[in-house]
Design a binder for these strands. Sequence first.
DNA 1: CTATAAATATGACATTTATCATATGAAAAT
DNA 2: ATTTTCATATGATAAATGTCATATTTATAG
Lengths: 238, 238
Amino acid sequence: MVNFAANTFAMNKCDQCIVRQLSSLKALNKEEVIKLANSKTTHKIKKGEAIFEEGEVTNGVFCVKDGIGKLSKLSSNGKDQIIKLVKSGELLGQRSMISNEPANLSAKAIADMEVCFIPKSEIINFFNNNNQFSLNLMQSVCEDLKESENDKIALVQKTVKQRLAETLLHLHEEFGENTDKTLKVQLTREELAGMIGTATESCIRLLSDFNKLELIELVGKKIVLKNVKALKKMAEQL
Amino acid sequence: MVNFAANTFAMNKCDQCIVRQLSSLKALNKEEVIKLANSKTTHKIKKGEAIFEEGEVTNGVFCVKDGIGKLSKLSSNGKDQIIKLVKSGELLGQRSMISNEPANLSAKAIADMEVCFIPKSEIINFFNNNNQFSLNLMQSVCEDLKESENDKIALVQKTVKQRLAETLLHLHEEFGENTDKTLKVQLTREELAGMIGTATESCIRLLSDFNKLELIELVGKKIVLKNVKALKKMAEQL
DNA sequence: CTATAAATATGACATTTATCATATGAAAAT
DNA sequence: ATTTTCATATGATAAATGTCATATTTATAG
């Protein structure tokens, strides 16, 4: 009885979690969710702190319950190249877990985060016994791959200006805006530069230009998109 | 008896195939290899011809038995950005098959190719019934993802000169050289430019520079790496 | 074999972007 | 409150790269 109650409680906890609703984990059945709830651990990560660093062996995946994180890699010249931003509902560290390799990227919090850690053994177990789960997981990696390939093309074929416009639109679409219309993800100019792959000064300069052209408005360090249509046009053509 | 003989023959054909030895297909058991051999179709693709074009629904995967292919995407400005080269032993079209999406990239032969087509139904069947196969497939997509992410970083953080040096080394390492020491993959300058993401003229100019510096030698349209050490140095630092 | 087209090569120049210097404003530390 | 530090901002300049023009060579078609 005590066990039953505990399990029910645990199950509900994971069952209602946003990650369970949005990620590959949606394929898990009740029994599996209970196992999950019993094996997971929850962690709070403060803004700026790392969930894991590149080169670390993670031995499991992280579910993002709340907050925003960045996946990035440090280059030889000391710059931090952001590969991807993650928000609540997403899984982290799947790739290196499956490849049996240390993390290729670092994961750090951009806004305070709450994440759950699921040990590798659980995931492998689900993977082997639940075809829908393995298919979902596979599809999510495939989605990442497609996005990465498209990013690669954009990096090569678009100018810094176009990439900045594109990235601002993307941030707006994916993370939304605050009540004062400013973008919800608050990146420093340096981080934004790291995302589009340019020098911090170039990024700042272009933001100034966009501001003068009234495409965006700079409210202190925050950014408001004022003319989405024109930004889209800028992101597309020259 | 007739059936048995036919199956044995078919199994052997796929069983000894290089793709079977190198790709996710190595996890298949005898019975599965027989099924595979009976459902696959073999195709010859001439240099320059397409295996599939971006936007097409492929409904299966292609095994590269022989030859070299390129995965590329046409950009709005008409340039063909090469994402990846494939050689014998590799699978093609896994991503779009699993994502249930039309191909994101085009696959074309750079050297005459021989490929086998395996229908989606077979692959899904293997995926659902053979855990090792699904894990292998997953790992191969993960490997592609890691490579793509690293490429992304290189594109942003390295100069065109560095990327050219890196790409030449990579082509040498992955595809080897002919008896006259020239690189085995023979790309046009335009294709090479497409790989490193630069203008054709810039690529030609840098090849000339490398030639003058005796890092490489240009034998007509072919390329010989003369100073691998110096090329490596160039690819790394500035 | 010649004519035509395509790929390679190179110069001249324009544009984009990075780098360095320096200023200003905002946040953090003492 | 003041100093120190850090992010943002902007100008001046250099370096990298793209674009256009135009040979030259090589491949292809007739």
